[in-house]
């Protein structure tokens, strides 16, 4: 059973009382008789207080129900409207998207982006003024540099090449790595997003990233002639961007 709010009950009873008063002579209704009787007591109070109140007579006149004429169509007991049901908020319209705390893209986001772009452009420009991109001698097939190194982002793979068969180091491990990366959202079923509630995934990724970072650093700075392990502060750098 739905709890009908107090004020609606009151309003309904009031309207019914008014209708009853006008439809006295017409044949009474049968089903709703007893319920209307029950609320009659306090309804009459409301009605009297309204009449004796401070509301101006002109307004009262305007708000008074239209006088019933015999031919006007009314329901049982002269009702012109009735309360069918009270629909609670959220019972029909289920609002899924709660209002989010939003700000205007302009200026809040665009200004930030503009500043970030300026900073990066400035950084690249100034860095480029002072540091030249490498250009070694013309490519020569007969002169293999020692060591020969891949671009830095592939040096982790080249590092693996010292430990595994080329097929494993160069194809299988990076292939499986990329495949697992693609599948990450389908493997990780934990719906939590905060790092403290997904410690396993966060640790796994950190270990994974550190693994590659360390391999790249070793391959870049700690590998000398013959791709042998060296210390850069002893034997010098064998690395070019």
């Amino acid at each position: 059973m739905v709890d009908i709010p107090e004020h609606l009950l009151k309003r309904a009873a009031e309207a019914r009382a008014r209708a009853m008063g006008q439809a006295e002579e017409s044949s009474g209704d049968s089903g709703e008789q007893e319920t209307s009787q029950a609320v009659d007591a306090d309804t009459s109070e409301v009605a009297t207080s309204a009449e004796t109140g401070k509301v101006s007579s002109a307004l009262l006149e305007r708000s008074a129900p239209a006088t019933q004429t015999a031919e006007s169509p009314t329901g049982p007991g002269g009702h012109t409207q009735r309360l069918l049901t009270v629909v609670k908020a959220g019972s029909i319209q289920d609002v899924k998207a709660l209002p989010a705390d939003k700000v205007h893209t302009w200026p809040h986001l665009l200004l930030g982006e503009f500043v970030a772009i300026l900073l990066v452009t400035g950084f690249v420009l100034i860095f480029s003024i002072f540091v030249n991109a490498p250009l070694l001698e013309l490519a020569n097939f007969n002169e293999t540099p020692n060591p020969s190194k891949a671009p830095w982002y592939f040096l982790g793979l080249q590092e693996l090449l010292t430990m595994f068969h080329p097929m494993v180091a160069g194809v299988t491990i990076p292939g499986v790595g990329i495949f697992l990366l693609i599948l990450a959202p389908y493997i990780d079923k934990n719906p939590e997003k905060a790092p403290e509630r997904r410690k396993f995934a966060v640790s796994l990724m950190t270990v994974h990233l550190m693994f590659w970072a360390i391999l790249v650093i070793i391959g870049s700075f700690f590998r000398g002639p013959g791709f042998n392990f060296i210390f850069p502060w002893e034997s010098g750098l064998f690395f070019d961007f």
């Binding site: 013309l138 490519a139 160069g170």
Partner: peptide, 25 residues
């Protein structure tokens, strides 16, 4: 693209690895 020693041998190392792709390397 610069076609210097750095470019040639870095790419040699890289493409040699791809050559080990199973079946159709």
């Amino acid at each position: 693209l610069p076609w210097d020693q750095l470019a040639l041998w870095a790419v040699t190392v890289g493409t040699n690895m791809m050559g080990f792709t199973p079946v159709f390397g």
